[in-house]
């Protein structure tokens, strides 16, 4: 039961003066079965005129802030302490993916999951996705198996390439060229699963990284990470990290989820004036404790 301290610093510098602006940050981690937020704070410079925290439609924490003094630099530093658990994969049988759509449509209690079957900004549906999926997973494959098979294929056939994509690269291109970054792989998998009738959603967060053997961990060298989750009517939401071909363990920290990246962008904003921008991001994920027992004694029943 590790405890992590996460520092996520985002810095914008503008060539001109920003007169005022409005922003939203989704930088407070989720409270959920696999993790608890022990504390958090967000420092914003310059001092915002208004801040307002709320839970969004998907259950993520959002901090709205408005800046009303002219400025040429914006720094948002989010700090949080999060305890995570390793949740072993459920032992109950997984559903055959081919049956999932009709199971979900038949049960009103799953109404909310139905939105994760629809196409979204970054995750279109289509025959190409369906065919690709069917070639890997015959119809009798269970959802858990399908995740495993897809993970293997991405590990084997797809190249991690940070120079290939931008934030606007369509997921069809990723499928065609078989390269991309974690965000692209997550979007691709979402498109694939939704195209065969499995609800899928995007998860943004962090992953603890290990320094190369014998070296010290560099400050600010960690990064945001992204993976996805699919819904099994028997087992609930199952997370999977296609980039590393693994089911997330206790080294993963979840920040927010939604239909795709567009719903969970960690920081967005609209500025008045300001000219061109340069952006710097530094993330540190530090393991600060290893608890034998949960820090939250009342909630160890998971």
């Amino acid at each position: 039961m590790p405890v992590f301290r996460i520092r996520h610093l985002t810095k914008y510098q503008y060539s001109g003066v920003v007169r005022h602006g409005h922003s939203e940050a989704r930088l407070i981690p989720l409270d959920m079965q696999a993790q608890k937020v022990l504390s958090w704070n967000i420092h914003i410079t310059p001092e915002p005129r208004i801040t307002h925290r709320r839970e969004d439609f998907f259950g993520n924490q959002v901090l709205y802030f408005s800046l009303e003094d002219p400025h040429q630099e914006l720094a948002v530093e989010a700090n949080s302490v999060v305890e995570t658990w390793f949740l072993p994969l459920p032992t109950k049988p997984s559903t055959r993916y081919i049956e999932i759509r009709s199971r979900i449509m038949a049960e009103p209690a799953f109404f909310s999951e139905r939105q994760y079957l629809l196409s979204s900004v970054h995750c279109p549906l289509g025959r190409e996705f369906r065919q690709f999926f069917l070639a890997i997973c015959p119809p009798n494959t269970t959802l858990l198996d399908a995740l495993g098979r897809l993970g293997e294929i991405i590990k084997k056939d797809f190249t991690y390439d940070r120079h290939f994509t931008t934030i606007h690269t369509p997921v069809m291109e990723i499928l065609k060229h078989r390269r991309g970054v974690c965000q692209d792989f997550a979007h691709l998998c979402i498109s694939l699963f939704r195209s065969v009738g499995v609800p899928a959603r995007y998860v943004s967060g962090y992953l603890e990284t290990q320094p190369p053997p014998g070296k010290e961990k560099l400050r600010g060298a960690d990064a945001s990470h992204a993976w996805f989750a699919v819904f099994d009517p028997n087992l609930g939401w199952l997370e999977f990290d296609p980039t590393n071909n693994k089911f997330p363990d206790d080294s993963y920290i979840r920040l927010a989820w939604g239909r795709d990246y567009a719903d969970v962008s960690p920081l967005k904003g609209v500025l008045y004036e300001g000219g061109s921008q340069t952006l710097q991001v530094a993330v540190d994920v530090d393991r600060i404790a290893e608890q034998k027992f949960s820090l939250i004694s009342a909630e160890t029943s998971h």
Binding site: R19, I167, V181, S204, L207, S224, V270, L271, Y272, E273
Partner: peptide
Amino acid sequence: VELQRQLEDLLILE
């Protein structure tokens, strides 16, 4: 008339 811009976004890398 003031120019409105979006904060630029960063690709999530690992």
